[in-house]
Computed example of a mutant assay.
Amino acid sequence: MIDFEKALATLDTTHQLALLMTYRDRQGHAVTAAALGCSIGRSPTCSAPLAAD
């Protein structure tokens, strides 16, 4: 668990929220994408300010 928390802390807030909503809160990809203003189609698009990889 500590390794996960360390890795999570290295991500920007938007990516943290996406992971927490999807896996901790079990909201699913569609709900998480909608909350972040993203599409989960074949060509994902997102209006949320995601950091470059």
Score class of each variant (00 low, 15 high):
M1G: 13
M1P: 03
I2T: 06
I2S: 07
I2F: 08
D3K: 05
D3T: 07
D3Q: 15
F4V: 04
E5K: 10
E5T: 03
K6N: 08
K6R: 14
K6D: 09
A7H: 03
A7N: 05
L8H: 06
L8N: 03
L8I: 03
A9Y: 00
T10C: 04
L11N: 01
L11C: 10
D12S: 13
D12I: 00
D12Y: 01
T13I: 07
T14I: 12
H15M: 04
H15Q: 10
Q16A: 04
Q16G: 00
L17E: 12
A18N: 04
A18S: 14
L19Y: 01
L20N: 09
L20V: 09
M21N: 12
M21H: 04
M21L: 15
M21Q: 12
Y23I: 02
R24Y: 05
R24E: 08
D25E: 11
D25R: 05
R26C: 00
G28L: 01
G28Y: 03
G28K: 00
H29A: 04
V31D: 03
V31N: 04
T32P: 03
T32A: 10
T32Q: 06
A33F: 06
A33Y: 05
A34Y: 02
A34C: 01
A35I: 02
A35Q: 08
A35G: 11
L36S: 06
G37A: 08
C38Q: 05
C38Y: 08
I40M: 12
G41M: 13
G41F: 10
G41T: 13
G41D: 13
S43W: 15
S43E: 15
P44M: 11
P44W: 08
T45F: 13
C46N: 15
C46R: 07
S47V: 15
S47K: 11
A48D: 06
P49T: 05
P49D: 14
L50C: 07
L50W: 14
A51F: 02
A52L: 09
A52D: 12
A52Q: 14
D53P: 14
D53C: 10
